[in-house]
Each structure stands twice: as C-alpha cells, then as structure tokens.
Amino acid sequence: MLLGLGANQLLADMNRLLSLLFHQGVLDEQFLELQQLQDDSSPNFVYDVVNIYFNESEKLLSNLRGLLVDKEFSDYKKMGKHLNQLMGSSSSIGAKRISNICLAFRAASDQNNRPACLRALEMLENEYCYLNNKLHEFFQIEQQRVLAGGVRYPIQQQQQQPPQQQ
C-alpha cells in the first residue's frame, strides 16, 4: 500500500516534469509515441533510444563545432549533412526545440552565414544540455518508480510483476 502510494507520487512527478517540458516546447508528442512503443519485449526502449540519441548528438555537436571553429571553414554542405542527421534523430525522439534550432541553423548554413551558424550552435549546445538534464531526471524518477511500484508504465500494465517488487 505504501509502496503503491510512493509509486503514484513518483508517477505524478514524472508527469509534472513531462508536462513542463511539453509546455516549454522542449518535447513534443513524438516522445509520447516513443513511450507507446515500449512494451514487455523492450522494457527500456525509451531509455535506450534516448541514450543513443545523446551519444550521437554529442558527436554531431562536436563535429559541428569543429567545423565552425576552423577559420578557413567553408564546407557548408558537410555541415548541412550533420544538421540533417541531428534533425532526423531529434525529431524522432520528439526533441522539438532542438529540431527547430536545427532548422534555423540549416537556414543560416544555406546562406553561408557563419555568425548566425555560431549562434545557432551555441543555442543547440544549451538546448542539448537542458534536454539531457531533464531527461536524466525523468529517467531517474522512472527508475525509482519501477523500484517502488513495479508498474513501469501507466499505459501498459505488466503481466508479471518484476522481481524487484518482492
């Protein structure tokens, strides 16, 4: 009973955090879609995907910085490719704000507007950090909730209670 209450509390925390991120425009409904895809066969799906996302985008961001820092830089085409990558994966996990900045970034890069590119990159890095922090917080709460309640997801109740519960 108590455990259930604790789990409910944690679930409320998670939902609050999510709705904050939605409200801020950091995430969009694609993130919910991602959650729908998580089921018994892939219980850590969202976490896994988001983890890969952070690893990949960190690489991409450092590549972008490397390109822009270079004084002789002129390879806007390559930058566009990196941006496309980042945009694709960001939109796939529902990182709306990042993909929006990517769009602006690409516009700047299409015009070979280097100062604009640099500003966009800074914004991207900030957004990346923010999203990273918030999602880590989110997954931490989720982890606690799993430990506390055994119900991993509000949508899909589990057939068998995980062993942690006992």
Partner: peptide, 17 residues
C-alpha cells in the same frame, strides 16, 4: 535503411509494433 541509428531504432520498433 537509415544511417541514423536513432531513427533506425525507432523505425524498427514501429515496424515490430
């Protein structure tokens, strides 16, 4: 086919779904 692993993973999950 997608070189973007994040997208690929999501698509794979969608297809399996």
């Amino acid at each position: 086919v997608d070189d973007n692993v994040v997208c690929l993973k999501v698509i794979a999950a969608l297809l399996i779904k």
